[in-house]
């Protein structure tokens, strides 16, 4: 028996919005420690890794490890039927071929349930090596989304250059060149407005704008985003999900042809 309950459906809606542009379907691996999802996008350029800890749920029970393959378009249709403040419960029997998603209004006067067919997905799990990153940048998630959106107008690629002075995002194309520099913030009143750079050595890497823009669909989940970079390895873009877990996106760099 698997049962996981969250106080607000809005969290699950935001999580789905953060992955459904990259993935058509995905396997949710459930165990007593929580829910994990790892999947590559269709073109095998990026990898999405979602971790939801069992202690972040209002109620969590998972007697046997369970892998639930879900069509994310179908899940989105079901979640559209929930009000943001509704409680949401996911339930499945051991070895079931369906999952039940139930919404309850705060006053318990409306209860709806949706049974969704599960899929058998033949998904490859990748081993992600431990990396000592050369640069780790923490910045407001909204600012990162704005930069990715703005620079995508000028080129398919963005160059991220990180030094101890700051981080520079550049794009160059037919229109010309765009550069956005962010300096590390001195003192800020609000922690969520800070730009913090931890640098071991400077790094310059090139990434495809369309994936970065897809990752920024996670912006509503978190006030801050963390970018971890190292020469010739994938960029890690991480959004914390408060008291519940995190979503990490790994993006392979563009390399010299």
């Amino acid at each position: 028996m698997f049962e996981a309950r969250l106080g607000q459906a809005t969290i699950l809606k935001k999580i789905l919005d953060a992955i459904k542009d990259l993935l058509n379907e995905a396997t949710f691996d459930c165990s007593d420690s929580g829910i994990q999802l790892q999947a590559m996008d269709n073109s095998h350029v990026s990898l999405v890794s979602l971790t939801l800890r069992s202690d972040g749920f209002d109620k969590f029970r998972c007697d046997r490890n369970l892998s639930m393959g879900m069509n994310l378009g179908s899940m989105a249709k079901i979640l559209k039927c929930a009000n943001n403040e509704d409680n949401v419960t996911m339930k499945a029997q051991d070895n079931a071929d369906t999952v039940t998603i139930m919404f309850e209004s705060a006053n318990q006067e409306k209860v709806s349930d949706y049974e969704m067919k599960l899929m058998n997905l033949d998904q490859e799990h990748l081993g992600i090596p431990e990396t000592d990153f050369s640069c780790v940048v923490r910045m407001p998630a909204m600012e990162f989304a704005r930069i990715c959106r703005d620079l995508a107008q000028f080129s398919e690629s963005v160059v991220i250059c990180c030094t101890k002075e700051g981080v520079k995002f550049s794009a160059s194309g037919d229109v010309g060149t765009a550069n956005i520099k962010l300096a590390q913030t001195g003192s800020v009143d609000k922690e969520e407005e800070a730009v913090i750079i931890e640098m071991q050595e400077p790094v310059t890497l090139t990434f495809a704008c369309r994936y970065l823009n897809a990752f920024t669909k996670a912006t509503p989940l978190s006030t801050q985003v963390q970018l971890s970079m190292c020469a010739d390895v994938p960029l890690v873009v991480e959004y914390a999900i408060k008291d519940l877990g995190h979503i990490r996106y790994y993006l392979a760099p563009k390399i010299e042809d």
């Binding site: 590559m40 095998h44 350029v45 990026s46 990898l47 490859e124 799990h125 990748l126 081993g127 992600i128 090596p129 690629s157 090139t206 495809a208 390895v233 994938p234 790994y250 993006l251 392979a252 760099p253 563009k254 390399i255 010299e256 042809d257």
Partner: peptide
């Protein structure tokens, strides 16, 4: 000129 690398160039199958 740059070309897009694949994620499996970096991460191995488990």
């Amino acid at each position: 000129k740059t070309k897009q690398a694949g994620i499996m160039n970096f991460f191995s199958k488990k």
